[in-house]
Design a binder for these strands. Structure first.
Length: 356
DNA sequence: AATACGGGGTG
DNA sequence: CACCCAGTATT
């Protein structure tokens, strides 16, 4: 393959002129860099920015994070999605704080052993914080290289990732690993965007396969398609003696570690209807107020949620489905619990119905 | 190697 | 609606 001449130098010049001002680029603290990288996994800078600031403020060092209760970490993570990131982040913080006695793992191989740190994140921290000359390969790097060189390899394949990593590393100036990696990703995010890339002003326009042949939309090639499963969820906030009943999601499923109100679930709309008409709790369930129907989309699931709120008299017997596995929380305590965003938003909209 | 895991922005 | 986002863990 004929490599693009002076690629790194031209890329770094572009980066010098066009880079965004982002807080994690102003530090060499591996803790903060790690934090930013985990937050930004499958997440846009615009969405992750506020979370990064919040985490740095609450947990200025890895020890602060390690000492925090997991519920608090998940609550700060609320709304960002992929909650295993927060659980792994917390677990890794404890590993670093205790096993490594606070000395942050300082090489790709050491970093790679941390929970939630894969190939990309290990390379990012190793290069940004420790100048280790290892190339990052994220969605941006895939896109930039696939378009520049006209590579039709399926980026879903492991083999392709290795190929692109080697290709990027072949262009990397060993003394400028950090800036080069940053520049590759920034170029993908700002110039060589997924849709409507800015080819007219691109410094590589004359070198780029996709720009020359008009293949920007075909590249990169990604074969995988996700299938969506439908789920039907019915939720009720039960309010009694000034407290709300909430339970933790402990099973291996979406929203693990988050809290939710009482739930009835079905695989089909018909099954849900039957449950609500025939089951014992149905009568009580239907007395709720502020019932909303909400369609909530996840990557692999389409959720049809109906959710409501209902008051029980102080002496009311507990409905059978509230037996164990859950607990009663004051509205303020409920605020502090980590919840799926769709639940949290409903609660915010209707919490004024409490105390009446 | 394939699949699950959130939520939001873009065209 | 379809695609994608500074990916990782699990099977």
């Amino acid at each position: 393959m004929k490599m693009i001449p002076r690629f790194a130098g031209r890329l770094l010049e572009w980066y010098r002129l066009h880079q965004r001002d982002l807080p994690w680029r102003k530090t060499r603290d591996p803790y903060r860099i790690w934090l930013s990288e985990v937050i930004l996994q499958q997440t846009r800078v615009a969405q992750g920015l506020a979370y990064y600031e919040r985490f740095v403020e609450h947990y200025p060092t890895v020890h602060h994070l390690a000492k925090a209760p997991i519920e608090e970490v998940l609550r700060l993570w609320q709304g960002l999605g992929y909650y295993s990131r927060a659980r792994n982040l917390h677990a890794a913080a404890r590993t670093i704080s205790i096993q490594w006695a606070g000395r942050f793992p300082a090489s790709y191989d050491e970093l790679r052993r941390l929970k939630g740190v894969g190939d990309y994140t290990a390379a990012a921290i190793a290069s940004f914080a420790f100048d280790e000359p290892v190339a990052v390969v994220d969605g941006n790097v895939f896109r930039v290289l696939a378009r520049l060189y006209g590579l039709y390899d399926d980026i879903s394949r492991t083999k392709t990732k290795h190929k692109f990593k080697a290709l990027s590393e072949a262009h990397m100036p060993p003394q400028e690993a950090a800036a080069y990696n940053q520049a590759m990703m920034e170029f993908g995010a700002v110039q060589c965007t997924p849709q409507k890339p800015l080819c007219m002003t691109c410094p590589f326009r004359d070198d780029c396969y996709a720009a020359q042949y008009g293949k920007q939309q075909e590249l990169p090639v990604k074969s995988k398609k996700t299938t969506k499963r439908k789920r039907y969820l019915s939720y009720r906030f039960f309010y009694r003696n000034g407290k709300l009943w909430m339970q933790e999601r402990k099973q291996k499923d979406i929203w693990k570690g988050l809290y939710e109100p009482a739930r009835i679930e079905a695989a089909t709309a018909r099954e849900m209807e039957q449950l609500l008409q025939n089951e014992a709790p149905a009568a009580l369930w239907q007395q709720a107020q502020a019932i909303e129907q909400i369609r909530h989309l996840l990557t692999h699931q389409e959720l049809f949620i109906d959710i409501g709120m209902l008051h029980l008299p102080p002496d009311a017997a507990l409905p059978p489905f509230l037996k164990d596995g859950g607990d009663w929380f004051t509205p303020e305590e409920c605020d502090a619990l980590p919840k799926p965003i769709v639940i949290a938003q409903y609660f915010e909209r209707h919490r004024h119905l409490l105390h009446e």
